[in-house]
Nucleic acid binder design. Structure first.
Lengths: 259, 259
DNA sequence: GATAAGAGGTTTATAAAGTTGACCACTGAC
DNA sequence: GTCAGTGGTCAACTTTATAAACCTCTTATC
């Protein structure tokens, strides 16, 4: 957190700007894996930069694992997802908070679907696992065990998806949980923005679990949607509060230093 | 609207970045009129730029009427508001869409307050003027007269504030209406984002007016809040739709050019 | 198999932008 | 009148970016 009223300017180079734009297009899904980029000469012209500077940017993107260049053939978006998201894509997402809202939007529909199917199809072993996860969620909250809570959260959602017995869903959600498991969005700022203590989160997880165990598809779906809605509202509020804090701090700096 | 998949990079100079940061601080209310900026040597160090480049930026801000420099004394934020907002501040606000939300937030409370007082205190002449404004709103909508609608809108809100008989409120809202009267936010994009036709807007204005004429403070206040809430929701939706359109267009460009 | 076009890869010279540092003039406090 | 701190100006140097030329690889065509 800066204590300064005036921030140092970015001094972004031309290559920095090119990298930023291409990364934004990757995050937004405009550029998908396998896509061939325009030739270097063409792209340099489109982006109004010199070819050496464009090449500098492309080299950095290649070193980050986001693109591949082939001598004599062209430049392509690298394979970013498969069984799991590539480290390159995970790192990219982590540096783009806006991706979190898309991530939640996707998760909302997928997890509502998963919760509904799980309520209909959970087997006895599925129920055992879900029950165990629920207990673990309670216990790690009581123990104020952050790392444990994160693992319990991911285990719970994974168990719900497994209980849906829909292979495609299980497969696709594997990549999504990669983000959660590696703590991409579970950072200090995020956790603080939610309810202070996290108790509401635990209760929401338990509500989903109980609806599944009771075999109530509508209730399970509604609880899953409510959970993700809550997370999104909290996160948005946290961002807005952070922005206001920054502005207020700068205002107070001005008063302190004389104005 | 760009038809290109890749946009030219900004090529912002160091001076551009300095100007942008200081303008942001002016819009955010961090730097207020009369405030003395740090010395050039100090500010250059804080912002991590050379002194000649800082001076280039300050010169542009001075030419824009936002700051004043005095040889041997220092650099100060110019007088930006008084009876009315300075052209410099109006121009600055126009270039910062985020200011619109603050503007609406401020208007919401002020106009709710004004509507309530107007319902309690409107005299017979006040009512005549408000009635005439309501008729003008209806007529300009029927005639599809955009310019007339804009003028009728401002006249109506101004009449409501006048009917409140609170001198401070009348005085303060004068500057706010400056923005509306000069069409700062009533641009094509904004009008399109609201309901397509604007009929709902007219109905909301009439609801406020009718509550005032009927002498119902609570109803007048609620109608004013609902009106501003509607405008804000519509504008926010318009911005989001615009962003999605841009992303979708770039995606379709990729498919068309081969991918 | 040879050729051509279009791709990526490298290097040099030049131009543009930015920084460093020194000095001048004005203002206000003492 | 002096001094410190402010804005104002300018030259020399460094860094960044651009333009242009050339090399090497790949693929399609004949």
């Amino acid at each position: 957190m800066s204590e300064q009223l005036f921030d140092p300017v970015d001094h972004d180079s031309v290559a920095d700007s090119v990298v930023a734009q291409i990364e934004d297009m990757l995050v937004a899904g405009i550029l998908k894996e396998g896509t061939r980029l325009p030739s270097e000469r063409n792209l340099a012209e489109l982006m109004d930069v010199s070819r050496p500077k464009l090449r500098e940017a492309l080299k950095r993107l290649e070193e980050a694992g986001l693109i591949v260049t082939r001598h004599g053939e062209g430049t392509f978006v690298a394979a970013l997802t498969g069984q799991a998201m590539s480290p390159a894509l995970i790192d990219l997402y982590a540096r783009h908070p806006v991706a979190f809202f898309d991530y939640l939007e996707y998760r909302r529909t997928q997890e509502a679907f998963a919760a509904r199917l799980a309520a209909e199809r959970a087997t006895a072993p599925d129920r055992e696992i879900i029950r165990a996860c629920m207990e673990r969620l309670r216990q790690t909250w009581v123990d104020a065990d952050d790392q444990g809570s994160r693992e319990a959260d991911a285990a719970f959602h994974s168990a719900v998806v497994d209980a849906s017995h829909n292979r495609t869903l299980i497969h696709m959600m594997g990549s999504i949980f990669q983000l959660t498991r590696q703590g991409v969005f579970y950072n200090r700022h995020f956790l603080q923005s939610i309810d202070g203590s996290g108790k509401l989160l635990v209760e929401q997880h338990l509500a989903i679990g109980e609806a599944i165990l009771a075999g109530e598809p509508e209730a399970a779906e509604a609880a899953a949607v409510a959970h993700i809605d809550f997370v999104e509202r909290s996160f948005r509020k946290g961002l807005q509060a952070h922005e206001r804090e920054t502005v207020a701090r700068k205002r107070s700096l001005l008063l302190r230093d004389g104005g």
